[in-house]
Structure formats: C-alpha cells, structure tokens
Design a binder for these strands. Sequence first.
DNA 1: TAGACGATATTGTCTAGGACAAAGTGGACT
DNA 2: AGTCCACTTTGTCCTAGACAATATCGTCTA
Lengths: 310, 310
Amino acid sequence: MTVPDLPDSPISVVERETGLSKDTLRVWERRYGFPVPLRDRHGERLYPADQVLRLRLISRLLDRGLRPRQVVGVPLEELIARAGEGDAAPAPQARAAGAPLFETTLRLLRSYDEAGLRAHLSLALQRLGLQRFVTEFAAPMNVQVGDAWSRGEIAISQEHLYTEQMQHQLRQGIGAIYPGTNAPSVMLTTLPGEEHQLGLLMAHACLAVESTRCVSLGVQTPAWDIAQAARQHGADVVGLSFSEALRHKSALDMLQDLRARLPESIEIWAGGALCSRLRCRPPGVRFVSRLEQIPPLLAEYRERASAAAP
Amino acid sequence: MTVPDLPDSPISVVERETGLSKDTLRVWERRYGFPVPLRDRHGERLYPADQVLRLRLISRLLDRGLRPRQVVGVPLEELIARAGEGDAAPAPQARAAGAPLFETTLRLLRSYDEAGLRAHLSLALQRLGLQRFVTEFAAPMNVQVGDAWSRGEIAISQEHLYTEQMQHQLRQGIGAIYPGTNAPSVMLTTLPGEEHQLGLLMAHACLAVESTRCVSLGVQTPAWDIAQAARQHGADVVGLSFSEALRHKSALDMLQDLRARLPESIEIWAGGALCSRLRCRPPGVRFVSRLEQIPPLLAEYRERASAAAP
DNA sequence: TAGACGATATTGTCTAGGACAAAGTGGACT
DNA sequence: AGTCCACTTTGTCCTAGACAATATCGTCTA
C-alpha cells in the first residue's frame, strides 16, 4: 500500500511539491493534528513520503473548492472516494461534437503517446475548425482530463502532457489565421498568480476567428503594467482569463485595482471558470462565463461602435 | 525621477515580484538595514515602489554571483552602474546571424506592434531555418530583451509580448516537423519553480531538428512525477531547463532528488542559463550550458548506443 | 606555485506560538 | 428571495533566536 524507497522530505520540499506554504503546513499540524512529520536531529520537520502524497491529494481537493476542515483530518482512502464523488452533473457536454474523441484522447495520454496525441488533436482541429474545436472539444476535454486526474486515472505528468499538446495545437490554429484588423483591439493576459495558459489561448482563438485585433501578453502580468500597456497601445478592451484555481479574494482585488487604473473608455472582459462561481461582481467589468458568449459580445461591441461613430 | 502613482506592496507581493523569500526580506531588514518598509495600521510591512525596484535589481545581481553584503546596503545609482559593468564580454553573439534583427525586434516591441513582430519573427524563422533561428537569433535576443528591461528601456508588458510571440513562433517551427522517431527518447520538462517556457522550447526545437523522439510535459513538474513518468514511458533521457531566475539551492536539491529516484539507465541532461554559473555539479547529471552542444551530445549518445547494442 | 585543509564570516532557512484579516457560513430580518 | 450581521474557519504575518550550509581567507604542504 505505501510507496517504499522514498526518502523523507524537509518542509521546503513539501512546500514545492504540494503548493502548500510552510506557514500553512505548520498551522495545520497545530490545528488538525495532520500532517505529523518526523524530526531530524536538529528538531526540523521531515515528512514521510506517504504524508506528502496525502498532502498533494488534499491540495488538489482544495483547488476544487472543498474546505480544509473537511479533508485535512480524514484518512487517505476516504479522500480518494470523495475525490470521485464531487464530479456529479457531467451531462451538459455529452452532446458536444467532440464527445466521441474524449476516450481516445485519454487512452493516448495513458500511454504517453505524444505522436499519436498530436495526430489526434490535429485531426480534430482540421475536422471541426478552430471555433468548434475550442468550444466543443478543447473546453469539455479540459474538464474530462481534470476529472480523470482527480479520480486517479491519470498522473499529473499525463495532465501536463495533455496541456502541452493542446496548447501546441491551439497555437497552430491561431497562427494559421492572418492577423485580424477589426475592432475592438483586445489586449489579452492574466493577472499574477494565474498561470494557466489554456484558458487564455482558447479565448484568443475565439477572438481570432472573428478577425479581432489581439495582442496577447501571456500569463501573469501585474495590474499596473497591464494598465500602462493598454493605455500606451490604445487598446479598446483588456481581456483577462481566470481559472478555477485562482483565489477569489486576490483576484477580485487586482481586478478592481486594474479597473481603477484604466480610463472608462477601455472595457474589461473577464472570462474563465472562476467567473461562474463568483458572487460579488465589481462594476465596470464584463463577465464572460462561457466561450460561446464571445461572438455575440463582439457583435454587440461592433454595433455600439458603429452607432457611436458615424 | 520616481513614478508617482505606484502603490506600496505587502511582503507577499514583493516576494512574488523579486523572487526573494519573505524570510530573506525580513532578515535583510534586520541585518543590513535595508529594505525599510513602512507599516500599515496593523504593523504589517508595506514596501514603497522604489524599494521594490531596488530589490529587483539586487536580486538580478545576486543571480549573477554577487554577494548580498556587497549589494544590499548600497544606493540605487551605484547598483545601476555596477549592473552595467557586469555585462562585459558581450562579444560572442555579436557575430550571430540574427544580430541585425535585434534592433528591429526591440523597435516593434516598443510600439506593441503584434502583427509586425509576428511577421518579423516568422521571416527570421523561414530565412534562418529552425536550428539557426534558435541558436543565433532567439537565444541572444532573449538576453537583449532581458537587458533592455533591466536598463528600463522596455516595460514588463513588452517583455511579456516578446516572450509570447517567440513562444508562438518556436511552436510553429516545432509543429512543422514530422514527429521524430530516433533515439534517444527524451522527456522534457522543468522542475517546480521554473516557469520559463522559452528555454524548454528552444531545447525542444534543437532536439526536434535532429529527429529525436521528444515528449514535453511543459513546465513545473514535481520531481516525483517526472521520475514516475520517465520510468513508465521508458524514456532514455530526462531533459531539464533552468533559467537564471531559479535559485541555486533549491534547483540543485531537486536535481539530486530526481537523480536518486531514477534508475542509472536513464540519463539526466540539464540545460539553461543557470548551468554555466554552477559550481558544484552533482554526479550523474550531464550539464549543457549552450544550445550548440545539443547536436554533438546526441551524436555521442547514438554512438554509444550503437556500440552497445550489436 | 598549486592544491588541500581548517578557521572564520556570511547567509538563508527553520523554529515557536500568538495575532489578526480575509473568506466562508448560517441565522435573523426586511 | 435578498441583505445584513455575527460567528467560524483559515491563511498569512509577526517576533527573534538558532543553526546548517556555503563562501572566503589564511596556512600548511608537496
């Protein structure tokens, strides 16, 4: 049951491998009685491999929205069972055009078949076209892969492989489009702390197929720099992507901060999985909870613009 | 001289922006009398923007091998002067084929001209071919852009734009190559904390042009997962990329940890800017300080393999 | 003169428990 | 059903001392 031959880890290594800060690890030990690391001869913490494994699982469950009190104290087996049950309501995307391709993708991932995966995704892209590839295949597939991971069916490394290949394919698709010149001019990026590129790329693709003028800054641009760049470049819209992993509070803070730094004339469009779970929505920001909303949003913007101009 | 409307930053933000840990920031304050943050009404540290700027510069100098005692206490002007003088010996890439293209790239960046930049990079790629594009243009250009940023000539957002476009172009190049099938089978990734994709992509490109079988996991894969994936997939080599931003200590720790978890038969090749500055080099790891060393390294591996097999 | 060794200085990380703000939860009231 | 307030949970920050890891420098030896 336990993994043998793995060495005990000092707290810095556990922080790196689980993403839980040293402070958090220490305070959990005090409050919940877990983890219970050994100590080396100088009194410093040494975490056995099985506890690190359990912490990694806990960390992932927290990202899914569970609360520490519900998961930190409980034994490993129960955690694994609970990891599966949160995935109710998988129905909506079952009708997507990409659905038959899901199982094949997972099979290729399991065997680390990079060439096969590349061919598979490339075919899907060509068959569906970039627009439908994104909305009907990539978006639901991301969810499938995340679920497969939390059920223990695929490893982290296989999720990484998927992300890498999908990113590759999306960039191929975007790169094949002649640079757009239509309004609005959109500056795309994510705020610091949000390192998921896939959401940003999917949005980029949806904008590019409508021939929108896009400038992507990649991930993690500080709010101050976004504001400066948007003003200097004369962007009409700043587009931000939020994955569900990002912490609500800091995300909203930065969003409001950015809104305050930008002139009224520059709109903010915020998209991604986080948006659908958001309660308080700061004014002056347009929330886009689904990729399908992008085309009508663009149409509306262009309507407004042409009504104002002539 | 100072930028007025910048807000003061809490310690967590400074940690993120400078790469210096909270512990380090606090202990410097105690020992060297710098930084001297303000305090909010709860007694928590608030760093003025100019101190954050200075810390960022200090962090860069430390990465170049200077000691804290020499740089933490000294005023900003002296730091800038000292930052410049470290850049001696820029000669080698002056003869690179990409050199005439550097200035154009910087000009396009300054005007946020995404379409122009894309066209410019695409032309360079087609003209030089992927191999030379990487070694003679992309690699030295990265350094140029980093230096331009540290001299204050371009903004962070412009560096981001560059990174994004270069990444796009490299992926186009790699994607155009029919998947390689030759030995060795290389699994590419970076360790946690290293989020720079460009180095990894450049290495990927250099391997791909030699028709090597590559599986890239993207960035930040924990050592344990790398080891598991490499064994399960039957990789011959694990290729890791280290940018100069990564801290020496944790990087070496993880590297040795990974070495211990992998069987002897799987080699580790470590590349990137960090390697050339490394003193102690753990055994069982092959260090590749320049991209040009990849082709001979591959040739040597294939030599060995064919000598052993028949 | 080069290299090995040991003493000393420097530097980052770890420890402890208390404190408190931010985020989530639940109940009472419009 | 929605808004406000109190309560609980949770992560981050604080202090200052200790010490391991690393760098530097002087000394001895071949």
